[in-house]
Amino acid sequence: MFENWLPELRRRSLETSRPTSIADLMEEFWKEPMKVFEDFPASRRMAFPSVNIAENDKEITVTAELPGMEAKDVDISLEHGVLTIKGEKKFEQEEKKEQYHRIERSYGAFSRSVRLPKAVQEDKVKATYTNGVLTLTMPLAAEAKSKKIEIRS
């Protein structure tokens, strides 16, 4: 990876028939390592799956994007206020031989854990999976619900 930058810099210096400055060397030195990330899709740099966590006065709702997966390939667990979504997204390969020019879709095993903002009733969690979106509805535990305290005069 890094072994290519110095010969390339020397070649450019010879082509322009002017010496390369230290500033040019430093610029090239910092550009080259960043090229590693050019072909690395943003989706792989972010946590997978992407989740949204919403709360109202009765429940917490978590939605997770799991495109191209089936519900049977997803495991969900909730322990001590930490929600974990695990699974494996398999590479779809047809019998015919195809030459791929670019693969940006993520494949393989994944595990994503998030701490819930409040305690929930773990035995009453409902999960649905529609069009690649997992939705978990979790009623708040009694101790997590806000209570209005009235002031007596």
Score class of each variant (00 low, 15 high):
Ile53Glu: 09
Arg45Gln: 08
Val82Leu: 00
Arg44Trp: 11
Ile22Phe: 12
Lys31Glu: 14
Asn56Lys: 08
Thr84Pro: 04
Ala54Pro: 08
Thr63Leu: 02
Val82Gly: 00
Met34Asn: 02
Pro41His: 06
Glu65Asp: 14
Glu94Cys: 02
Gly81Tyr: 01
Glu55Asn: 08
Ser43Thr: 12
Ile85Gln: 01
Ala23Trp: 06
Ala54Met: 04
Thr63Glu: 15
Leu25His: 06
Leu25Asp: 05
Met26Trp: 02
Leu83His: 02
Asp24Ile: 13
Ile85Val: 08
Glu79Trp: 13
Asn56Val: 03
Asn56Phe: 09
Ser50Ile: 12
Arg44Asn: 05
Lys90Asp: 09
Ala54Tyr: 00
Asp73Thr: 05
Lys31Asn: 10
Gly87Leu: 12
Val62Asn: 07
Pro67Gly: 15
Ile22Gly: 06
Gln93Thr: 12
Ile85His: 01
Ile60Lys: 11
Met34Val: 01
Glu70Ala: 04
Asp73Gly: 07
Glu92Asp: 11
Lys90Gly: 10
Leu83Met: 13
Phe29Cys: 09
Arg44Leu: 12
Ile85Gly: 03
Leu83Ile: 12
Asp57Val: 11
Gly68Ile: 04
Glu55Arg: 09
Glu79Phe: 03
Glu88Cys: 11
Gly81Ile: 04
Ala47Phe: 06
Val36Lys: 07
Leu66Asn: 02
Phe91Met: 06
Ser50Lys: 14
Ala42Ser: 01
Val74Met: 03
Gly87Glu: 01
Trp30Ser: 13
Arg45Ser: 10
Val36His: 12
Met46Glu: 13
Phe40Trp: 10
Ser77Glu: 14
His80Gln: 10
Glu38Lys: 07
Lys35Leu: 09
Glu28Cys: 03
Thr20Phe: 14
Glu27His: 08
Asp73Ala: 14
Met26Arg: 08
Glu88Gln: 08
Met26Pro: 00
Val82Asn: 06
Leu66His: 04
Pro41Met: 01
Asp39Ala: 13
Phe40Gln: 11
Asn52Thr: 14
Lys58Ser: 15
Pro33Val: 03
Met69His: 07
Ser50Asp: 09
